[in-house]
Amino acid sequence: MSHKWGLVVDLDRCTGCEACVVACHAENNIPTVGKDQAAIGRTMQWIRVERTWEGDFPNPKVRFQPVLCQQCDAAPCEAVCPTYASYHTEEGLNGQAYNRCIGTRFCANACPYTVRSFNFYNPQWQKPLNLQLNPDVSVRSVGIMEKCTFCVQRIKSAEIQAEAEKRDLKDGEFTTACAQSCASKALVFGDLNDPHSEVSRLASSSRATKLLGELGTKPNVTYLERGAWQDANNG
């Protein structure tokens, strides 16, 4: 049975703590770029927590929203890549074949969510910080576009493990680095093709929305809207 990976972000649970951001840094060999580069918008994080203000003192409201690659089924980034570096994988992910990327940056322009990071320079690690690098994930070099992969290395290693044990993948057997770190369980990862998985259950919630859903990109990331007090009749 083929899988269709999806992520549910429960905005009612998200506290904006950004543990997911650092977890992603560690898992996916994402470099830090330093103050000067950060100042001109070249940070590399694959997931960010957007903060939106509404209203003013004394009644300001804040909304946090983690934004990562939405792994769209109708992805604007895929069609525009001249070399198939950005393409749709068999399991419905928006794949990014780093070695195939020639760096036209067209995908990043086409992405309505602005979730793609580009290696403007070769990333650097002050030794021995490089010893932390995850050997399961390649270290990208200059001129390559990168983005959230739904921790494809974890998917692959779980699939290989299941294959070795001659069984199907179990829901919750593995998860992405962001979801694993998320203390309030705002991020839930799983197989949308499995009707019994937690992610399927949550994705069919009445609070479910898609980010920029009106664009028709068919994201596989679902957001569950914040509720209000005494408005908790649906989970």
């Binding site: 525009v80 001249p82 760096g103 036209t104 067209f106 390559i144």
Partner: peptide, 28 residues
């Protein structure tokens, strides 16, 4: 303008051992 100019020739459709062709859906 591309990030890795030395690979610009990948835009050209030619048969290679990799068996990959350019993406003809791409406006580029």
């Amino acid at each position: 303008h591309i990030g890795r100019p030395w690979l610009g020739y990948w835009m050209i459709p030619y048969p290679s051992q990799r068996g990959i062709w350019p993406n003809f859906r791409s406006p580029l």
